[in-house]
Amino acid sequence: MKLLKEPLVQFALLGAILFAAYAWLHRADAPVGDAPPAPIRLGESDVRWIRETWARQWGREPTDEEMRGLVGAFLEEHAMAREAARMGLDDDDMIVRRRLAQKLQFLIQDVARVADPSDDELRRFLESHADLFGIPPTVTFTHILFKNLGRADAQADAAAALAMLRGPAPRPAPAELGDPMLMDADFIDATPQTVGDAFGPEFSRAVFDAPRGEWSGPFQSAYGLHLVLIRSTTPAATASFETVRDAVLERYRDDRAREAYRRFVAELLQRQGVDADESVRRWLPPDLTPAAPERPE
């Protein structure tokens, strides 16, 4: 299956499917009653398949008599199905239509998934999706809250406290300043999401931008004004490829399957064209230019 890893082969496969689908979709263009169809092919493999299916179901080999009956039924089904298709009976049948579309969808998605990308390709994918696999930055900090409630001027109180914390010794202990709060005063190795979930996104941004190693602020949160001492930070990092390779591969395959299908459908629609009545054109997907279907020569 090494070949299948080659993007060129993948592309060729998709192309082949597209071509097959295209040919199939246009087969009805041939007027009914034209040249007689090719005979129904009955090969050794077909007969083997008929025999095995029967044997699986009944737990024994079919007798010769039964085999003749089974082959007869096989031919009958094929002949009927082909004639029905020739007459266009499948065209307006939602069961057939949906089943065929679904088969093709699975096929496309499977092909897109089977394609095992090279490590280089995965690395590139990881780079372009760093947010999904990356290690977010963290911050370890202590904060002091000044609530508006019960203070005439929380801003002034916070500023005064900041001056004391930054001023000459003796300095007050942080625990003596500000107001108590349900949330911990210390946050250890907190990600932007953790800080944001606790205090809101603006506060999170402010904390990650605050200077290290000194008290700063006040910064506004949903609960009041905070002075903040950033004790340490770690920058955002790209996850090492080896540790996330499996996850990247999964995501790559998923995205690939979705994208391949989406592209396939878009291309297919574009190629086949849609001949829409004026009155219903507003319902067409915006990227689809309505046109009469192009006919092969």
Partner: peptide, 8 residues
């Protein structure tokens, strides 16, 4: 973070 109340 201070000397006065370092213990506290």
């Amino acid at each position: 973070i201070g000397t006065l109340d370092a213990d506290a």
